[in-house]
C-alpha cells in the first residue's frame, strides 16, 4: 500500500501543498491512502535534542505503518523524508520505502501533460532534501518539464545553497534570526525572477515572508496540469 504522508507543516500551514500533491496523484490515477491521525514524524524532536521522545514516536509510527501494511511512503516534506528514512533507520529496520514527492513524481514524467508557463523561475535547495539526503537533481528535472518556463540557477545552489533559517527549531526559539536568515536568499536572487520554486513546506513558509512569490514543486506542477 502507498501512503501519502502530508507532514505537519502542510497539514496546518502550507495547506495548498497537500491539495496540489493530491491533485497530481489523482491526475496520475495513483492509488494511495492518507492518515486521519497522521501525527508527527518526530523530526523536530530529533533536531532539538529530545531524543527519548523522538524514539517513542518513531516506534509508534513504525508499528502503525506496519499494521497498515504500508510498503511505500511519499512525502512532500523533506524533514519527514529525512527523519523517516535516515533517523528511523538509525534505531530500527524500517519495513517501507520512503520517497520525497519530487523523486516519486519524476518516475511518472511521461504521463504528465503540462501547459505552457511563460515565467522565469529559480530553485531553492532545501537543506534536508539536498545536503542531508543528496536529492538535488530530481526537482530541477521536474521544473524543466514545464514548457516555456525559463529556469535560472541561484548563485548558491545544490550543496552550497543558503539556508532558509526555519530549520532545526530555530524559528520557534529565535524567530527574528530565522526571518533575517531567510533574507540572505531573497537578497541574492535576480529581479526578473517570477517565482522561487522549492520543495519544502518550511522553506516555502520562510521565503514567503519576504514578499516574493514562492511555489512548492507540487504547486507548480498542479498549476500547469492539462
Amino acid at each position: 500500500m502507498l501512503l501519502y504522508w502530508k507532514g505537519c507543516m502542510s497539514r496546518y500551514r502550507t495547506k495548498s501543498i497537500v491539495k496540489s500533491v493530491e491533485k497530481i496523484l489523482s491526475y496520475l490515477n495513483i492509488n494511495y491512502i492518507t492518515l486521519e491521525d497522521e501525527g508527527c514524524c518526530g523530526s523536530i524532536l530529533y533536531r532539538t535534542g529530545q531524543i527519548k521522545d523522538a524514539i517513542k514516536i518513531t516506534e509508534k509510527n513504525i508499528e502503525k505503518l506496519k499494521s497498515l501494511r504500508i510498503k511505500e511512503i511519499i512525502t512532500s516534506c523533506p524533514g519527514c523524508f529525512r527523519t523517516m528514512l535516515k533517523d528511523y533507520s538509525n534505531y530500527y529496520n524500517i519495513p517501507f520505502q520512503v520517497y520525497h514527492f519530487s523523486q516519486f513524481l519524476l518516475k511518472f514524467k511521461e504521463k504528465l501533460k503540462l501547459k505552457e508557463l511563460n515565467a522565469t523561475v529559480t530553485y531553492h535547495d532545501p537543506c534536508h532534501l539536498g545536503r542531508h539526503m543528496g536529492v538535488y537533481e530530481e526537482p530541477r528535472e521536474i521544473i524543466k518539464l514545464v514548457p516555456k518556463l525559463k529556469f535560472i540557477e541561484m548563485k548558491y545552489n545544490r550543496n552550497k545553497a543558503l539556508c532558509c533559517g526555519y530549520g532545526g527549531g530555530v524559528r520557534s526559539v529565535y524567530p527574528e534570526v530565522a526571518i533575517e536568515v531567510s533574507k540572505n536568499i531573497v537578497n541574492e536572487i535576480d529581479n526578473n525572477i517570477d517565482f522561487i520554486i522549492t520543495s519544502c513546506p518550511f522553506c516555502k513558509y520562510s521565503l514567503s515572508s519576504n514578499r516574493v512569490n514562492v511555489l512548492d514543486i507540487s504547486e507548480l506542477i498542479a498549476m500547469v496540469l492539462e
Binding site: C127, R131, H132, N159, C163, G168, V181
Partner: peptide, 13 residues
C-alpha cells in the same frame, strides 16, 4: 546552540 539550523553548509565548505 539553538540558533544553529543544522543546515550543513559548513560541512560542505
Amino acid at each position: 546552540i539553538d540558533v544553529c539550523t543544522k543546515c550543513g553548509r559548513c560541512k560542505e565548505l
